[in-house]
Design a protein around this nucleic acid. Sequence first.
DNA 1: TCTGGGGTCCTAGGACCC
DNA 2: TCTGGGGTCCTAGGACCC
Length: 343
Amino acid sequence: MPMAQAQKLAPALLVLPPDFEAYSQASDQVMAILEDLSPLVEQVSVDEAFIDVSDLPDDPGVIAARLQARINQETRLPCSLGVAANKLVAKVANDYGKGSRKGLDYPNAITVVPPGEEAAFLAPLPVQMLWGVGKKTAARLKTLGIETIGQLADAPAGLLGAHYGKWAADMQRHARGISDSPIVLSHTLKSISNETTYDKDIGDIDEVLHTVRWLSDKVGYRLRKHHFCAGTIRIKLRWSDFTTITRQVALAEPTNHNSVIYDTAAGLLRAAWQRGRKVRLIGVGSSNLQEPAVQMSLFDPGQDKETKLLNALDELREKYGKKVIQRGREVGRQSAFEEEEEE
DNA sequence: TCTGGGGTCCTAGGACCC
DNA sequence: TCTGGGGTCCTAGGACCC
């Protein structure tokens, strides 16, 4: 495969300060360094990214060493890198390097897996290091006598297929270090949600509804900030015994209005409510995100008014801080924005 | 640890339509 | 009218990841 010639790095930053601002600043700084090297950067999370350096003239191991030195110097932060022909192996290589440097100092490892040696590199490692294999799957594989990635690669296809169906073939390809998942330059948001866990379990539905209102405001604010409307609203409810349910409903018309989100979520909560049971966690979520239609509701001028009002409030919130603005009917309860630390 | 928060993807079943 | 197949959408829940 000609693709196997491509070399990709998966740098993972380990950022130490438990201080959010420093955290995201450092993240931006590192991403800028990566983009300076190549435009083919995929940011996976605040502290992880893939970069495709296959078009650069130098040896990928050398590039990695230079990159790490630059990050160390410019951000004063350690970082670990994995180098391999595809993202999957680069990720495992990076995790492996980080893990083996645990202890004295913060991981600042570089692990290179040369093309063609993917399967051999992976073989002795525990299956759980494979992307997509977590605790549950690892435990099930163990009952089949499979504990290392190599054993997974060599397992009879029929045996795996019987237990994992379609997923079995993918899992086995991954175990052999084969993956063609491309670098994705920008990820589009699929859902936006907020949830909260109570200090003590709550048996009063009004109190939970109060929280739902607050969470709905947060979700609405974030939807508007990202210029999205949601086609589906969802609640997540964890009872005191830790059983968790979700309830969702598709809207007739997508929205990013706090009031519509709240009314929908409150309806779902009332329908799912069981008197006598107590709640540990409540969440409000939105999905099926889409761009707002230009002519929202021709026949509902009230909605248009609400849009304008919300936009005005959002602007004031951004300008003067979170505490200033509360709608009249909301006064007396905690604003969703008092402790907002949104990017 | 008696269990934080915000995401993604996959599967399965039911409703509905042709 | 009944039966069945197949496609699609929606909902619920599980597993996993950072």
